[in-house]
Amino acid sequence: MAVSQLPGVPSAVWTVKRNVCDEFDAYIVVSFNNATLVLSIGETVEEVSDSGFLDTTPPLAVSLIGDDSLMQIHPNGIRHIREDRRINEWRTPAKRTIVKVGSNRLTVVIALSGGELIYFEVDITGQLMEVEKHEMSGDVACLGIAPVLEGRQRSRFLAVGLYDNTIRVLSLDPDDCMQILSLPANACDQASLFQKLNGNGFACHCAPPSIHLMVPGWSWHVVKPILQLQSLSAWLARHWLS
């Protein structure tokens, strides 16, 4: 066990590997109000300055992306750190900031202030590429995206929570990427879908062309709806129209 004294009270902590095949994590990344602290994990745990992470801004998310790259998402952009130490930066438009993040090992969705969603995928060269955008009706409260299932290149669904206490389910398939999903045309399929959703603890109703889901217990005072959204998104990825 290693002990390292922190310079303040952290707002979030992540551990991350350098490569998907690594057995152990390589870094501990600590977020503060206006900075990022990176600690290397080895015989000892110590602060490092050559990891490629930007240390002058608080991260919203830190993860392995692709097989061998690191990603740091902060309010003003996405920092993609390649295995050979090349760094690619994606910057937010003027007067917009990133407020919410949903990601897995191959895909990233960010929500900007004002409600715009931007979807990224890792291409065959390992580069993080912007794929599609979608404008929501208001600011995004939280995002949920399932892990990529074995044999697939991407997740099938994105769950987006809004401050009106509803969730929109968006497709991530290339044919209708970032489009709000409508209910199946067949009434039996609708009934089956409602039964599945309601049986898993979600209140569901139809307001065409959208599926509206009310998360139990989610109100203005709930501060962790993202946990419920991630669970919902993963459930949809496994069971949608199955």
Rank of each mutant, 00 (worst) to 15 (best):
M1Y: 06
A2Q: 10
V9P: 00
V16H: 03
K17S: 09
N19H: 15
E23K: 13
E23R: 11
V29W: 01
V29T: 04
S31P: 02
A35G: 01
A35M: 08
L39Y: 01
S51H: 05
L54K: 13
L54E: 04
T57A: 13
T57Y: 04
T57S: 13
P58T: 07
A61C: 08
V62R: 00
S63R: 13
L64V: 02
L64A: 00
I65C: 07
G66T: 05
D68Y: 02
S69Y: 03
S69V: 01
L70A: 01
H74M: 09
H74R: 12
H74D: 01
G77P: 05
I78C: 07
R86A: 06
R91G: 02
P93K: 09
A94W: 14
T97D: 10
I98K: 06
V99N: 07
V99Y: 01
N104V: 01
N104E: 02
R105G: 11
L106F: 10
L106H: 00
T107D: 09
V108K: 02
L117E: 00
D123P: 02
D123N: 15
I124T: 09
A141K: 06
S155Q: 04
F157P: 03
D164M: 08
N165S: 10
T166D: 05
L170M: 08
D173G: 14
P174M: 04
C177L: 00
M178K: 03
I180P: 01
S182K: 10
P184K: 11
A187W: 12
A187H: 13
C188A: 14
D189H: 14
F194S: 09
Q195R: 15
K196G: 08
N200F: 02
F202C: 10
H205W: 10
A207C: 08
P208R: 12
S210W: 13
I211N: 03
H212V: 09
H212P: 00
L213R: 04
M214S: 08
V215Y: 04
W218N: 08
S219M: 13
H221T: 15
V222T: 15
L232D: 00
L232F: 09
L232V: 07
A234E: 15
A237T: 07
R238W: 06
W240Q: 04
L241M: 15
S242C: 13
